[in-house]
Design a protein around this nucleic acid. Structure first.
Lengths: 193, 193
DNA sequence: AAAAATATCTTGACAGTGTAAAGATTGGTT
DNA sequence: AACCAATCTTTACACTGTCAAGATATTTTT
């Protein structure tokens, strides 16, 4: 808390600095030393809180993923039933990155994410957005009393996830010219017919 | 051709060295100096052929994209009609990266690709794989005598592309556990029902 | 409350990186 | 034969991640 030697909460400050740098100059502009400088701290100070540059990047990703999850959770919570929750979650998935393309590149640029398509096991270690998708999907099949084999369920999940993710990828990573407004098209149901 | 000072074909040798490095250690292991060392040339020699590291990377991407296009073109050429060409192109799209996940990360990790969804304009500058998709799709609508509005066509293209791309992304960038064989599922028609 | 242990931060150093400038070597052109 | 442009080397610099050693503050122990 004292202003001189100890920062007080350098760990979180470094994460916030990282998010700021990514918003301003993308992942390419992110360096340990710049983040440290933003926190007015020496270039080696981060090593008291992170083993690696990678470990800082992981923490920044977790922070951005929290924002992402908030948006997805909102979309799910605002839906009257599981079916429309699935749809508005997909729309929220794409819309989030449509407004923050740099976040997409940062999160998925070279990162590995853990996901278990299987629906009959523990999957607490799943990538949180995927876990939410799985839960919502299972709620959907329950509400609609849909009976599907395990493999069919897994394929449904894979299709749901990859269609939303693919649309976000194309929209964020490519210079796509189109005559329609993608955000409006989402509401119109381009994702899930 | 002489062994001493001039390399002979350093430009292509650097590109090949880059591809090799990416296959062995991913994009993270790629540096100008390592590529130069592989060609047994000084660390500044690449600057006679490439303005930037980025320019070398672009050239490497073009080389990998050629391989990719070859696979897609094969898939299209081997199909009896445009409809099955569309399907087998999508399968080839995913299968290519399923065998070379590092290529996916390298090509789409942080890169921008140009694509014009509009079907009634010149689009020679489009990303070649997308151009092939667009051509095949137009051939398909012609064969089936399908009449669609411009917007509908663009949305079809976007859906086709993003579903294949999304599936490849999920398969390559994530540690997904599934109980079925994705490659078999592709042949079974998971992509285009 | 004093002392010891720990967490946090600074300084200095090193190898690896991209890139620029200046000079050496070569092949092709006139 | 003389010149020119292309190609390559050498040298240098700023920036990066990381480590080691030491300084300072906080917490724990006695």
């Amino acid at each position: 808390m004292s202003d001189s030697y100890h920062h007080g909460n350098l760990r979180q400050a470094l994460i916030d600095a990282g998010v700021k740098i990514i918003n301003e100059s993308g992942e390419g502009g992110l360096s340990l030393r710049k983040a440290a400088a933003l926190c007015e701290v020496s270039h080696a100070a981060p090593y008291a809180h992170f083993k690696d540059k990678d470990e800082l990047i992981e923490a920044i990703k977790a922070s951005v993923t929290e924002q992402f999850m908030q948006k997805l959770q909102c979309a799910v919570n605002g839906a009257p039933d599981a079916e429309s929750a699935l749809i508005s979650m997909g729309n929220g998935y794409v819309a989030f990155f449509l407004h923050k393309p740099d976040y997409f590149k940062f999160l998925f640029g070279n990162q590995n994410i853990t996901a278990h398509l299987s629906t009959d096991k523990e999957y607490e270690e799943d990538y949180p957005p995927f876990k939410l998708l799985k839960d919502t999907y299972l709620r959907f099949t329950a509400e609609k009393k849909i009976k599907k084999s395990k493999t069919e369920q897994e394929m449904d999940l894979l299709k749901l996830w990859s269609s939303a993710h693919g649309l976000a990828a194309i929209a964020c990573m490519s210079q796509v010219k189109m005559s329609f407004d993608l955000e409006k098209a989402l509401e119109g149901g381009i994702l899930l017919k």
